[in-house]
Amino acid sequence: MDPRPKRAASPHLTGPLHGAGLPLRALFLVLVVALMPMVTLAASGGQDNAVANAASVSKGITVTLSPSSRTVDQGQSASYTVAASSVGGFTGQVTFSVVGLPTGTAAAWQPSSVVLSSGSTAQATLTVTTAPNTPAGKTGFTLKATSGTTQASSQAQLHVLEAKRTFDVSGSVDGMLAPGVSRPLDLQVSNPSNKSIAVTNLTVAISQVVRTTTAVAANLPCTTADYKLSQYSGQYPLTVVPGTRSLSALGVSQSTWPRIQMLDTAQLQDGCKGATLKLTYSGTGQAN
Results as ranks from 00 to 15, higher is better:
37 P>I: 11
274 G>S: 10
93 Q>I: 13
168 D>F: 09
15 G>L: 11
11 P>C: 07
181 V>M: 04
65 L>H: 05
109 W>S: 13
96 F>H: 13
83 A>L: 14
263 L>W: 06
42 A>M: 11
217 A>P: 04
270 D>W: 11
191 N>G: 00
24 L>S: 04
56 S>I: 08
53 N>Q: 04
154 S>E: 10
66 S>T: 15
64 T>H: 09
79 S>K: 03
100 G>N: 01
45 G>H: 06
213 T>V: 15
229 L>Q: 08
134 T>G: 09
12 H>C: 03
221 P>R: 10
279 L>A: 07
100 G>S: 07
221 P>G: 13
177 L>A: 08
159 H>M: 02
189 V>R: 00
39 V>K: 12
221 P>T: 14
43 A>W: 10
233 S>T: 15
252 V>L: 03
182 S>T: 03
42 A>Y: 10
80 Y>R: 06
92 G>Y: 03
260 I>Q: 10
177 L>N: 07
246 S>A: 02
30 V>D: 02
147 S>Y: 06
212 T>Y: 03
239 T>R: 06
75 G>T: 00
82 V>A: 02
272 C>T: 08
137 G>Y: 08
163 A>K: 04
124 A>S: 15
179 P>A: 06
65 L>S: 02
154 S>D: 15
74 Q>S: 14
73 D>V: 07
94 V>Q: 07
